[in-house]
Write a protein that binds this DNA or RNA. Structure first.
Lengths: 207, 207, 207, 207
DNA sequence: TTTTAACCGAGACGGTACGTCACGTCTTGTG
DNA sequence: CACAAGACGTGACGTACCGTCTCGGTTAAAA
């Protein structure tokens, strides 16, 4: 997904000599954009394929030529969705706690954006495309590990952590607990961020 | 939910003098059971109200007399779902690590049962009934805290933990990280259980 | 068809005890009327089921609950169509030729009404419902024979025909030749009526 | 149609200097053959242009370069359809009745071939191309008149008919009545042939 | 020989209608 | 009144075909 390899779900011919009129790649993106926008706005099952087609300025047939159905379209759309700034390295705030808080703020903003419909759409789409979860995961895993190493090594350089620190996957903990928090109807506010940093992340790093 | 208080979503008449034929409470449970079973089997949107009615041996009108729609029915059904043995206290295995592993095994079994359709149904139902998450949460929260205190005090009695230990909500961490793990398409196997206990829970407790 | 026996194509349950909400017969007739009108106006394949539903003030599902598709609906609609005055006996004009001309005028008016779309729809519908032709035929056959006997006996009473006259099915000849005439793009005018009476019908009666 | 004049419906450029690659006439015939075959097999509206293209080994564009649409293609195809032996003179069987029976047998074979789909296609095509009926007619009319004159003169030479016989268009009667017979779901069998000859044609000739 | 313009196969495209299905409501008859 | 059965309006589904278009490639006459 991150590299050039296309998603599996997309119907592809992969003919050696591409005959006939080629598909318009711009339309593909327009459809994906429209799908993401609609799911985020009104939710997965309130979103109709006609609405996607209409917003993308495309005919329904053009959608079904590329994807086999609603769930598959959403699966692909979410799978290919990547805020462009996601993979940037975070700034050095000068302290471990500051770095962690900055990281969590970014994460909260992103998860909050995936509120409601989109998360629900993701859950449904996962049923139809069991590879989705894996693909979603693979794209982020490398980035998450890099961020974690960066923050840890900065803290070690500052003397805040011992050189032997070997913490678990912190990002998994952050995202998992935050998701659960959200599902319980509680807000991703600064109080929760403090709790996460001081009672979970710091102890794990210092263990 | 646990005690006699009915869910809010359920249409209630609460007439002073209940005239006419009274509602058959047995049918109510049959509908809820059928709904849970179907969502678990084929997923939220593949489940039709007709199918629920048919499996419950009930007419559609009888369902709509009690709930306002599909999402609300599922929300209520999931909300009322409680494996009978859930609130039992875990046995003392003789060591902190053993207690944690036993706890996680139980949790994994439960989460694995909520695979696919049911989890997806839950996500969708949450959209329609924002109280669902809170209700789901409240029921478990007390139990989770009691379990955690029990395990910690046993460990303190054994001398495995200092008396001052004041860990965060461990169960939230376990459930959250496990859910994320599952969504990434990875299995809840013993390797993951070891990772969770040795790299996350133990460090948090010992911090 | 003429008596109470219903058409075969209509989906029927014929349950002993009709349970559930009964079908609204008024809707059935409204659908048939709308279908006939639309086929006559714009032709068989320009007619859409949505248009029929809309004009009949009915939903598409209500149509498909009764008929299996477009062709079957049209087949049934045409099969049940019967101008109420069709089976009236013609007046006595005082001469055989006058009677024949009057008969042919009536016939021409009817066939002209079945112009274009309706005839075309009939042809298509016949493919889907091979009983249609037979049903259409049976309803008219008795009437046609009665008319013919009436006109012949009047002529015999006047002395215009010998008592031994035993002509073939004149109406079949009239309708068949007229249809062909119409298909060749020629009009059903008085010249053609004269030709039919003087060169075909009278010779056949006098033979 | 019979002579070299092309059908009107065919798109023609008639450019002064036809530059570029000329059209492949063989493809034209392949398309017409495929169209006729498909209409006869599965009927007008079950026949798709894609199927015609596929069977003719031709692309859709090649069809639309020559005709403006489905109805026009069918109109042209039927208009150009001419069993090669059609315009041959029938053999002398030695008697008027024998000649008529032979003629009717030939006609029945031809009409039976036009069963179902083709007739239905013809009806639909006529709607789109009102000239079709006229063209179909003109081609046959001369031949029909020649046949009739031939059979009558043979009978007169044999003394079976008086020299003054001046019958109406017998072929119209035969075709019209047979078509109606067919539409009523009755077979074109020998019994019907006898009826036609003895009760309709012979009386008309002898009148 | 090169240019040029039309033909050709393939198939993407916007549209429109198809026939199906489920939702949630309403209307019967029965208990 | 509750209840079973099932008709009903609504609206989305996914499919199929129409007639148009845009590619790359071909073919024969014109230059």
């Amino acid at each position: 997904m991150v590299d050039g390899t296309r998603r599996v779900v997309t119907k592809e011919l992969e003919a050696d000599a591409p005959r006939g009129r080629p598909r318009d790649e711009a339309r593909e993106q327009a459809i994906l954009d429209a799908a993401i926008a609609l799911v985020a706005e009104i939710g997965y099952d309130a979103m109709s394929m006609e609405a996607v087609a209409s917003r993308a300025g495309v005919s329904k047939a053009t959608i079904y030529r590329r994807w086999n159905g609603k769930a598959e379209l959403i699966a692909d759309a979410i799978g290919r969705m990547h805020p462009q700034d996601e993979f940037a390295d975070p700034d050095d705030t000068g302290s471990l706690r500051g770095d962690l808080m900055a990281l969590i703020s970014t994460m909260f903003a992103k998860i909050s954006g995936i509120d409601g419909g989109l998360f629900c759409g993701l859950a449904v789409a996962m049923r139809a495309d069991s590879d989705l979860g894996r693909l979603l995961d693979e794209g982020k895993r490398d980035y998450h590990e890099r961020i974690q190493r960066l923050i840890v090594s900065r803290a070690q350089a500052r003397g805040e952590l011992p050189g032997s620190a070997e913490p678990p996957q912190l990002m998994d903990v952050v995202v998992g607990v935050s998701l659960l928090h959200l599902m319980s109807g509680r807000p991703l506010d600064s109080e929760f961020a403090d709790y996460l940093v001081d009672r979970v992340l710091m102890p794990l790093l210092r263990s």
